[in-house]
Amino acid sequence: MIVLDNNVPQISLYYEPVIGDSVPEASRRDWDVSYDLGDSWKQIKKEKRKNSSLFKVDIVVYPELKLRNLVITQIYQVLFNLNPAIEVSLWKGMKFIGQVIIPVYNEYGSSYEQVRQGYIALSQSVRLPYNIFLTATIGTFNNYRWGGTLDAKYIFKDERFSVDGRIGYTGRSRFEDWRWKVSPLKRFTWNIGGSFYWPEYNTSFSLKVEQYLLSEKGIRFDMVRNFRYVSIGFYGMKVQNAGNKGYNGGFRFQIALPPYKYKRRGYIPRVMPSEYFGMSYNAGNEQYYGRSFNPRVDDNMATENSFNPTTVQRNFLRHDLN
């Protein structure tokens, strides 16, 4: 069995009963889950897909919650938005997203009061030989950026180890007074680093060198523990020019939103909440340095782990399969 994401192959599931198993039922240990597709993909890639997403439309509502501590007389300032988006699979690996940000509760100031555009982007993903994944994205992103990015990831033969990187070329993008204002593309950002996955505890560790939006450079360490419906992460940074001698850190979390399964009825658009809701907390309260952006609204630490072989084996293969 080959699992696809927007018709791009991700992992293979190979069933082979354990020798000597006296129970005539399939169990979790009978399945070998791997990024290595072997010869299976060549043999079946022309077969009809089951539950293909091609040309199908989703209307996804992304809740957004932010907290900051900048006012002495107030513990936290709160921002809460509901951000519906139209997501369409156009062809193999290609996805369009158009999002609107709708303020619900705002203590961040007048610039956050308007209904405005969020992500409006085209994203193309491909899988190359030797477990190399590439994704190119153009459009408007979060943190007031617009432009293009290229992401690359390589997974080693020992699938606990991987290297990945991102390069971006962007300008400033802001929607004010019902006008979209942009600056020329002139800012390069990038990151590159490696990751280690600890299967016994479903925990990943990553270390990256990065260049941020003000051209300052830094180094960042992340640790993420994944559970079935929750991912919790902690991070630490050392960034040029930042306060507190450049040190900062915090935590992140992503929570899966119910219902956890959705069925399609042909090409009728599905209306649903986002797969995950999450936020991050900046413990050092640094407002200027060490800032970056995300080019895809559904790219987070939980979805990054969704096709990890151990996660699939633990969470989506039941103990006994009839």
Rank of each mutant, 00 (worst) to 15 (best):
G218F: 00
L150V: 13
S40G: 03
N51C: 12
D164L: 13
L317N: 02
N308Q: 14
V23I: 14
R296V: 07
L90D: 06
S292R: 03
L150Y: 04
N202G: 11
S89H: 15
L70Y: 15
L37S: 02
G171K: 04
D177F: 11
K95L: 08
P273W: 12
K92H: 05
G194C: 10
V78F: 06
Y169S: 00
D177W: 07
N305R: 11
G233H: 01
Y15H: 10
V100P: 01
D32K: 13
S34C: 12
T149E: 02
Q313V: 01
S111G: 12
P129N: 06
N244S: 11
N226G: 08
T170G: 09
W31Q: 03
W41P: 00
P273T: 08
K217Y: 07
Y144F: 10
I219K: 03
G147F: 01
M94K: 03
M279I: 11
A26N: 04
W41V: 01
Q99E: 13
N244E: 12
M94E: 05
L122P: 02
Y14F: 11
S125M: 10
G243M: 02
F55H: 15
D30W: 03
Y144L: 07
R296H: 11
Y144G: 04
S162Q: 08
N81I: 14
S34E: 09
G109H: 13
E25T: 04
P269H: 08
V8K: 01
V61L: 11
N315C: 08
P63A: 09
K186D: 15
R318Y: 13
T149F: 00
F205C: 11
L122V: 13
K153G: 02
L213F: 08
P259N: 09
V71N: 08
S110N: 10
K238T: 09
R49P: 04
E47T: 11
P309M: 11
N81A: 04
Y201R: 12
Y197M: 10
V271E: 13
L54D: 01
S123V: 11
K48D: 10
G243P: 02
A136E: 03
E159C: 12
Y76W: 13
P63L: 10
K186W: 15
F277W: 12
N294P: 04
L150W: 03
S280Y: 06
Q211K: 15
M94W: 03
N241Q: 09
A85W: 00
K238N: 11
G243S: 08
N202E: 14
Y15R: 09
F188A: 06
N294K: 08
V3Y: 06
R49E: 02
V115G: 06
K261Q: 14
P199G: 04
R145N: 05
I101T: 04
A85V: 14
T311E: 03
Y235C: 05
Y229T: 14
E159R: 08
N191S: 07
G246A: 09
N322L: 10
I138P: 01
Q114F: 07
I155A: 00
S206H: 03
V8W: 00
N106F: 07
S183P: 06
V104G: 15
V78W: 03
K46G: 00
D30Y: 04
F175S: 07
N308W: 04
L67R: 05
G233F: 00
D151H: 07
S280I: 05
D36K: 05
E210R: 07
L70S: 15
T73H: 13
N131L: 12
R264T: 05
P309G: 06
I97F: 00
V71A: 06
